[in-house]
Design a protein around this nucleic acid. Structure first.
Length: 272
DNA sequence: GCCATTTGACCCTA
DNA sequence: TAGGGTCAAATGGC
């Protein structure tokens, strides 16, 4: 990335986001052309770099409550790092040792079925105050063997005339149990974001929508990891096209896109 | 025997 | 301090 020394952080942030957008548009064009995978990979690296810079700038703005720790940034950069340490910690008695989830970084879905195509394992059930039905807690079946930290909470919100489930998803699937995405929407479900600013949640929402339809295929949750510069071998341009298209459709529909547009620099990206 | 579910205990957060 | 999220022992199904 360019040298931004002496530049206003706000301007630098905008510059990084605009660059990211520009690279994305170029990538979109490239993906329509065959035999351009090398250039596409280079663009993906640039996009990744822009987002990384933007995160760094945001962190440097001094809001300690909202800043990511270095560990969190590294976790995003290298989702599978530190697994040995985690395994050791997990073997201790960690009962009750948790941080209560915040609604940000999660998303919700209401549907007639609990089945979303993923392999979930139930690990708890609680009666919720002022709620007629208990809340069930699920984690990914591959939590331990593949370090997948995705969890969800399922609660019945109505029984009549049909049973409706309210599902809240947390965390990102990092396991390999999912399949290749196809961007389709489930007519019987509705997805709501509580926070659409986090890139991975966008991806996972996409996943939940695809999986909720048994006919449609399932999102490969590692796709975004595959975009990382560290793993360029996985850059299948078809997958990238599917992913980038669906990802930006979600972004455009979110309120955060409006927030970004307030900068006067970001505009909706159209996909054909 | 392996794996998933149930359920009570633990304890953090609001 | 109550409510809620997670853990792990007990239990059951295959």
């Amino acid at each position: 990335m360019e040298d931004f020394l002496g530049e206003n952080p706000h301007n630098r942030l905008i510059k990084e986001l605009v660059e990211g957008k520009s690279f994305t548009v170029q990538l979109q064009t490239l993906l329509k052309q065959p035999n351009e995978s090398v250039l596409a990979e280079e663009l993906i690296r640039k996009i990744w770099g822009s987002f990384t810079q933007a995160i760094t700038v945001l962190n440097s703005l001094g809001n300690s409550d909202n800043s990511l720790t270095q560990g969190q940034i590294e976790e995003v950069d290298q989702p599978n790092s530190g697994s040995e340490l985690k395994k050791k910690k997990e073997k201790q008695d960690r009962r009750g040792c948790y941080k209560r989830r915040k609604t940000s970084g999660s998303w919700m879905r209401e549907s007639e079925t609990m089945n979303d195509g993923c392999a979930w394992r139930k690990y708890g059930q609680k009666k919720i105050l002022n709620s007629k039905y208990p809340r069930c807690y699920y984690r990914c079946t591959h939590k331990y063997d593949q370090e997948c930290r995705a969890t969800k909470q399922v609660q019945i919100i109505q029984e009549n005339p049909i049973i409706m489930y309210h599902t809240t998803y947390f965390g990102n699937h990092t396991c390999n149990s999912t399949k290749i995405p196809k961007h389709t929407y489930n007519n019987h479900s509705m997805v709501k974001h509580s926070d659409s600013t986090v890139l991975k949640e966008e991806e996972e929402e996409e996943e939940s929508k695809g999986q909720s339809d048994n006919v449609s295929s399932i999102v490969d949750s590692n796709l975004w990891q595959d975009f990382m510069p560290s793993s360029p071998s996985a850059h299948d341009s078809t997958l990238a096209a599917n992913y980038s298209s669906s990802y930006y459709e979600e972004i455009i529909s979110s309120h955060d896109m409006e927030d970004l547009a307030k900068f006067g620099e970001i505009e909706a990206i159209e996909f054909c």
